[in-house]
Structures are given as C-alpha cells and as structure tokens.
C-alpha cells in the first residue's frame, strides 16, 4: 500500500528479485493449470490400482480406452471450439446421427460408412460456423438449434428411432471389434487424430489463431488474425469429429443405435474444462482434455467395479469434480493476474 515505486530510483536488485518471484509464481500457477487434471488422474489411478483388484488388468485398461474413444474425439473438437471462446452443443446429436448414417451407408461399403456421416456432420458444423462467425449469433443458440435439428433428422431417417440399421459391412464390424497389439483399432485411430490435433494447435498458425480469437477477439482482428475463418473451421472440425465418433461407435455396436448421445455434449464440455481449458476461451491444451476424458472414464469404470453402486453416482462425482475444477481455475487465473 505504499507508493515507493512511483517516483525515485529503485535499486535494480529489488526489481530483479520481484521479477524473479513473479515469474516463478507464474510458472507454478501455469503448470498447475495445465497439469492439474493429469495429477488428479494419476492419484485416482493409484488409488484404484491399490484397492480394486479387477481394475488391475490389461483387459480392463483396454476396455476403458475403447469406451473412451468416441468421447475423446468429441472432446477433441470441443477443445478447439472452447479455446476460441465458443461452445458446441450439437455434438451429442451429431454423434448419434453419424452412427445411424454410418450403419445405413455400410451397405455400400466401409468407405461410404465413413464418408456419409463425415459429409453430413461436417456440413452441419459448417452451417454452425458460418452462422456464428458471420451473423455474430451466440454459439450457444446456434448449436442448440443444430442439436435439435440433427436429432430430428436422425429420428426422421430412423422412423422415430424405432428403425435400427444394422451394419452391413464386415470390414466395418471388424474395425469396431478388432484390435492391434490387443488394443482396439479405434483407440489407435483416435490416438493418431489426437496427436495431429496437438500439432495443429501448438505448432501452426491456425492453432495460434484459435488461441488469439479466444483470448481477445478485438485484439486478434486488429492484429490481422482471420477471426471469422478461424471460427468457421473449429465448428467444421467439431462436426466432423462428432460424426466420426458416431461412425466408429456404430462399427463397435454393429448397428446405428438411436438412443445414444443425449447429454454427450455436456460430458465433452465437462472433460475439456476439467482438463484445464478456460470456458471463457484463450487457454487450454489437448493433453489436458485427454486427462479429463480418461478421468471421467476411469471414474465410470470404478463405479462399475464397485457393482452395488448406482451408475448415476458417476454423474454426481463428475459434477463435483467439475465444480472443484472451475473454482480452482477461477482462483488460479486471478492469482496469475495479480502477479
């Protein structure tokens, strides 16, 4: 509360010490923000390994990963969207629509089974992006409309959801249930896409633009960042990834199940935020999102292990986690600002 540093020379040593201290705090806080979910994941894993014998098997680990593959894809797209400061509520609907489309199109071969859901979900993502970027409508409303529209479309092509298309392509079924090194194909596919996503986000100009748009849209446009183009692309990516997630899930189940995906968008948002991405945009990592998705997956798995627990408890626990993370993040961001 004193004013010593307004006028009069300061001793450089004190300044340097102050700067060092500020930089150290900044580094620590930054690390906690980025790696918090990973740390919690490790703690949960250690506890689980120690107390649940059934958890401690390779098969169980592979099961967790296979189950986490579609949510991971959706959360990957959501990470891009949330870093730009947006939100995509349509992904749960696109996921189930993608599954139904893939199962139907599988009669024309495995290629069609992937291309059709990608084309339709990508197009819906494009529509979302164009509306959000060019008419400046709120992402929440635009993608809520897409959520309702895509779910309606899915119900229309499946006779009110009663018509379940079976996967006709053996290749597709094999992709959904086969494995390489005892780990499901879809896990490898998702892993590859995640790595590409990380490189795009961290090492390309498009990635920088995503952070800049979310960090400060006005500043970004003054600095020459193609704000609108960036926004359109993240929603296209989100749509494509949701459609792909639906397709690989159909491959695993062998049919286009129509009763899935409700609330999936909220799980994805939860995973992304637990992973340290700021809901207000501008900061976040895919590594954090991976930790977030796995954390939710492991908790689900553990609750199944306990057996006599109602699986709804998983949502109670996820909800609690989410609340804690948001509180911690708010605090950390403030701490960083002050220094």
């Amino acid at each position: 509360m004193t004013m010593t540093n307004i006028s009069g020379p300061e001793t450089p040593a004190i300044v340097a010490e102050d700067v060092r201290k500020a930089e150290r705090t900044d580094r620590i806080v930054g690390t906690v923000q980025r790696q918090g979910a990973l740390a919690v994941l490790i703690v949960v894993l250690v506890i689980a390994l120690a107390s649940f014998p059934n958890f401690r098997s390779f098969d169980n680990a592979a099961t967790i990963l296979v189950a986490a593959a579609p949510p991971m894809l959706i959360a990957l797209g959501m990470t891009f969207v949330i870093i730009t400061g947006g939100i995509d509520l349509s992904v749960g609907s696109l996921y189930v629509l993608g599954g139904v489309l893939a199962a139907w199109a599988s009669q024309y071969g495995i290629l069609a089974a992937f291309l059709l859901p990608l084309a339709v979900c990508g197009a819906i993502g494009l529509a979302n992006g164009l509306l959000i970027a060019y008419t400046r409508m709120a992402p929440f409303i635009v993608t809520l409309a897409a959520l309702l529209g895509a779910r309606g479309l899915m119900r229309a092509i499946s006779s009110e959801g009663s018509n379940t298309y079976l996967v006709q392509s053996d290749a597709l079924r094999k992709l959904g249930n086969g494995s390489f090194l005892d780990i499901g194909y879809q896990v490898w596919l998702v892993a590859a896409l995640v790595v590409i996503g990380m490189v795009v986000l961290a090492r390309t100009r498009f990635g920088s633009s995503i952070y800049a748009v979310g960090g400060s849209e006005d500043a970004a446009s003054l600095m020459g960042v193609p704000v609108r183009r960036t926004k359109v692309w993240v929603y296209v990516l989100s749509g494509l990834l949701a459609g792909l997630a639906g397709a690989i899930n159909a491959a695993k189940l062998g049919s286009g199940v129509t009763v899935l995906g409700t609330g999936m968008e909220l799980d994805a948002i939860a995973a992304v935020v637990i992973g340290g991405t700021l809901l207000t945009g501008g900061a976040g990592t895919i590594a954090g999102t991976i930790a977030g998705v796995l954390l939710l997956g492991v908790i689900q798995n553990l609750i199944n292990q306990v057996g006599n627990l109602n699986s709804n408890w998983q949502q109670v626990i996820s909800g609690t986690f989410l609340a804690l993370v948001v509180v911690a993040q708010t605090y950390l961001v403030r701490l960083r600002r002050v220094t």
């Binding site: 100009r205 920088s208 952070y211 700021l278």
Partner: peptide
C-alpha cells in the same frame, strides 16, 4: 498503438509479438 493495450493477454509474449508472422 492504442491506449488500451490491444494484444492477447493469455498468449505468451513471444506469440503476441509474432502472431500471424510466426
């Protein structure tokens, strides 16, 4: 250079300096 700094606070100093010309 505007009165209110028009950079992106959440990005690093280097990223701000080079944004768009990395």
């Amino acid at each position: 250079i505007y009165q209110e700094v028009n950079l992106v606070p959440l990005m690093t100093v280097a990223q701000n300096l080079f944004l768009g010309r990395e």
